[in-house]
């Protein structure tokens, strides 16, 4: 077993925050979209294929959270190499996790836009693609948060290097 330092503890907290924060937001978003989707499918089963696409939209934030968490775990040496992570490096990783967790909150609002998109495209199939684009818009903060975290982890700390 590797020696757990304060740095490792901070880093894992960062990984936990990144994945838990985005995970909770995704769950709320996908939930909101799911409620709308069930209604639309009850009206007409044909709505299923549109609804499933909308419902998948808020899931990307969790993907960003997961990749960030994975990079932090790798950087903290928990995948075998074993490294005595300094407290400072651990705090930096915690910060990176926090960026992704907080920007990932966008998944909640993306879920709301998805729900509206499901309802709109059930009424008018032409509203499908515009609805998808509206959903894509909400993801912007999460994308920039993810880029910032990547820069911190990969460029700053050299996690993969």
């Amino acid at each position: 077993m590797i020696e757990v330092t304060m740095g490792t503890a901070f880093a894992v907290t960062g990984a936990a925050l990144a994945l838990a924060g985005t995970g909770i937001a995704t769950a709320i978003g996908v939930g909101a979209a799911g409620v709308s989707a069930a209604g639309a499918v009850a009206e007409d089963k044909e709505n299923f294929k549109n609804a499933i696409v909308f419902q998948a939209m808020p899931q990307t934030q969790t993907i960003y959270g997961f990749i960030t968490a994975l990079f932090i775990i790798m950087g903290a040496g928990l995948l075998g190499e074993g490294a005595n992570l300094s407290t400072e490096a651990g705090l930096v990783m915690l910060g990176a996790g926090l960026i992704v967790a907080l920007t990932g909150i966008s998944a909640i609002f993306q879920g709301q836009v998805s729900a509206a998109g499901i309802a709109a495209s059930a009424k008018n199939p032409d509203a499908f693609v515009p609805g998808i684009v509206f959903c894509g818009q909400v993801e912007t903060p999460a994308i920039f948060g993810f880029i910032a975290a990547l820069i911190v982890l990969v460029v700053g700390l050299g996690v993969l290097g």
Partner: peptide
Amino acid sequence: VFSYARLTALAIGTAGIALA
């Protein structure tokens, strides 16, 4: 201009999930 950085974010998204 910076909005195009999403190109890289999504590329890393694909590579990251594939890695996992």
